[in-house]
Design a binder for these strands. Structure first.
Lengths: 199, 199
DNA sequence: AAGTAACATTACTCGTGAGTAATATCTCAT
DNA sequence: ATGAGATATTACTCACGAGTAATGTTACTT
């Protein structure tokens, strides 16, 4: 009764998931046909329904996979205790870099969970709240200007990440490192040239 | 032969356009049914095809309407000649504010042209290039740090605008003015508190 | 008042694509 | 080697929604 059970099935299921992820990411939900997914996975239509109750169900599963990984990432990359002021830029840069790397690692899931899903707005709202919380702590500690709303800053940061992910990261034009350093440089120090700033 | 010709027809057409804009903005292209559009416009299905060759055609017309207005806006809001250094923040803030007001004025078109359309990425690319061009001029003039890529800054700015438009502007949570001043404050001066910056 | 565009309707077609019923094969435990 | 569950297939159904054919009505021009 307990053989190497379900191995083949799991493999088929995984193939379907991978094919679905790619199709959804490239064509969106409606343009993606179940018939195409199964073709890519080397199966036929009814096999699909052996593993998923509906087309929506696969999509949701992919969205949830993204959400779960995202939460895992955030959970593991909490800001640690007291930091020296000089270290703040580096720490922020590293955090942003880690995030870009995460997005780059699973491009299909990123496209689905961050841009295609109806839930995407909700997911980003969670993300923003978390970032705002972390930034507020740094602000309390005196590292950031006290007249800025960290909620707004978090929104801006996420907006920037979204934009750059779509136009630079996913197309492979720029690396997580270079994007992170440019973004953080801009956000921490601002655009104005020093002579005007330090006046 | 030349009566008050086409008046009724134009009105029906406008009603269809308006209904389509609202439906597309709220439900997206595929979830929007021609049957729903015509119902909202107080007409029946074939009347729709009296004015538009297809569902796609209305969508495209709305996207183009957005694009056209956007280009008009940009064309009219060119940066003028030499500005005093102290005026730069104000001018930038005004430009961003104008842009937010533009987006707020036609929320449905904004949603369609900036977020729903397949062409949206292309439209943003154009926009970014234009902003980058303007910012580069200011940079040449010494107002902005010379070590920043204005192309990247433009991308960041657009990313921020996208995000805030979706989460704050269109839902009516914040005004164009407050959003513009917060965004520009952040981008020009950065997040770091002064004691660290001026070190 | 009558002819003619313009504007609109009722009643269809028809492709597409999600999902299913019935059936077949493969693989392992006994 | 055989029965049983797991894995897959062939051959459908069926709803939905875009687009159309045929026809009717309105309103203005002469």
């Amino acid at each position: 009764m307990a053989r190497e059970k379900g191995l083949k099935g799991m493999e088929s299921r995984e193939r379907l998931l991978a094919a679905a992820a790619e199709e959804f990411a490239n064509r969106g939900f409606h343009e993606t046909k179940v018939s195409t997914i199964v073709k890519r996975a080397g199966l036929t239509q009814p096999a699909f329904y052996l593993y998923f109750p509906s087309k929506e169900a696969v999509f949701d599963e992919l969205v949830n996979a993204f959400r779960t990984r995202l939460h895992a990432l955030i959970g593991s990359s909490r800001f640690e205790a007291q930091v020296e002021a000089q270290d703040v830029p580096k720490r922020v840069r590293m955090a942003v870099e880690t995030f870009f790397r995460f997005l780059e690692a699973t491009p299909h899931l990123t496209r689905i969970g961050l841009f295609l899903a109806p839930k995407a707005e909700e997911i980003k709202k969670e993300l923003i709240a978390l970032i705002a919380f972390n930034l507020s702590a740094e602000q309390q500690a005196g590292y950031f200007r006290s007249d800025l709303s960290m909620k707004t800053v978090a929104e801006c940061l996420v907006g920037i990440v979204e934009r750059l992910t779509l136009s630079q990261l996913l197309p492979g034009i720029k690396s997580p490192e270079s994007l992170a350093s440019q973004v953080v440089d801009l956000l921490l120090y601002g655009m104005l040239s020093m002579k005007h700033t330090s006046a």
